[in-house]
Design a binder for these strands. Structure first.
Length: 365
DNA sequence: AAGACGGGGGT
DNA sequence: ACCCCAGTCTT
């Protein structure tokens, strides 16, 4: 019988002959995080967690998950909730159409399906906000169906382990990785394996500073062998960000009320609240901006507008860099059809974009 | 096939 | 500054 040092056993817990999936499962059993939706694979909980976590770090999304299951214990509760309540709970998480799709799907499941979720990939895929990744996740985790998930973690793990440099943000590369992921799927514990490879990508095979020295897959890893860890995965990407300058006019009403409106359905921050104002594509002089604001809001030509802060408030979106400016005026200008006038205590309950919510907080002081 | 769509955290 | 995150939908 051969004798190993304990340190060596910990460093290489997986013998070479273990297949990729077995190694992932073994690692997952020893290293998985204790996440609230992992108690029991209830479809409502798994679906809710998957929608919340799309393009979102687990650490950021988990508090939202806990608040959602507390507020809406069943899909019927979510379906019955007013949209404003759902949006307010979602405030700050971004990608706000996810919340509307979530609500629409909850109503569909509640009314058309008696609260019972579809139990196959194919049927799950037809739900709003559920694409191939989420359908695969729910089908495998809840129903053991043979569907391989491919998310950002899986792209990273597979591109490194197999040394594949096809761009992960282009359809050909995405098809290639999906096919590879499918071929690696084990015959048992598919849900655990899918969660395992994602967990492995998040905790071990991280984007920056991956933990190669303690990696159980190091020996078979092409990228590690070739010193290409930092280059993989490859992205073709690079869509450039546009600049926008948003100017908001705050009419300081004697009663302490604020003029507010909802943003259009299309574009960023869909139907979230904002103050009346205008969008410019370039920097302008203070005079030009005031002139445009007065014209936009049908104000008297002589009305004075004062900027409420020195520096513009910068805000970064996926494809835009915003600079926000807040102006104040004494004039009670004509109310637009889209606009409402409400007390501060009331509008605080609305769903606001983060930089406007922050500004609102500062207004209270 | 390529863009649009957020906000937070890491380096 | 730039990259990335348990992706999906629209054009």
């Amino acid at each position: 019988m051969e004798v190993f040092h304990l340190a060596e056993l910990k460093k290489t817990p997986t013998p070479k002959f273990m297949k990729f999936a077995a190694c992932i499962l073994h690692w997952y059993d020893q290293n998985k995080r204790d996440l609230p939706w992992r108690q029991d694979p209830i479809p409502y909980h798994i679906w809710l967690s998957e929608i919340l976590m799309q393009q979102t770090r687990i650490e950021q999304g988990t508090p939202y998950y806990l608040r959602f299951v507390e507020a809406f214990p069943t899909v019927h509760d979510l379906a019955a909730a007013p949209e404003e309540k759902v949006m307010k709970l979602w405030q700050g998480l971004g990608y706000y159409n996810r919340a509307r799709n979530l609500h629409a799907t909850a109503r569909y499941i509640s009314r058309e399906c008696g609260g019972v979720f579809p139990d196959s990939y194919k049927d799950l895929l037809s739900l709003k906000g559920v694409g191939s990744y989420t359908a695969s996740a729910i089908a495998s985790i809840c129903f053991g169906e043979a569907r391989a998930v491919v998310d950002g973690n899986v792209y990273r793990v597979l591109s490194r382990y197999y040394g594949i440099d096809s761009p992960i943000d282009r359809p050909p590369g995405q098809r290639e990785f999906q096919a590879l992921a499918n071929s690696l799927l084990p015959k048992t514990r598919r849900g655990d394996y899918n969660q395992g490879i994602m967990e492995f990508g998040a905790m071990q095979c991280r984007p920056k500073n991956p933990r190669c020295s303690t990696c159980p897959l190091q020996e078979g890893c092409q990228a590690h062998r070739q010193g290409r860890i930092v280059e993989l995965p490859v992205k073709a990407g690079k869509t450039k960000v546009k600049k926008e300058y948003l100017h908001f006019a705050l009419a300081l009403d004697p009663k302490g009320e604020f003029r507010v409106q909802q943003r259009p359905v299309k574009g960023y921050w869909p139907r979230l609240y904002e103050f009346p104002g205008l969008k410019l594509d370039r920097e302008e002089s203070s005079e030009r901006i005031q002139e445009s604001l007065r014209k936009e809001l049908n104000m008297e030509p002589a009305t004075e507008l004062r900027q409420l802060h020195e520096q513009p408030i910068k805000h970064q979106l996926s494809h835009r860099v915003l600079q926000l400016f807040f102006w104040s005026t004494e004039e009670v200008y004509e109310m637009g059809v889209e606009q409402r006038q409400e007390a501060l205590s009331k509008i605080e309950g609305f769903a606001w974009p983060v930089p406007l919510a922050e500004f609102l907080q500062r207004m209270k002081f």
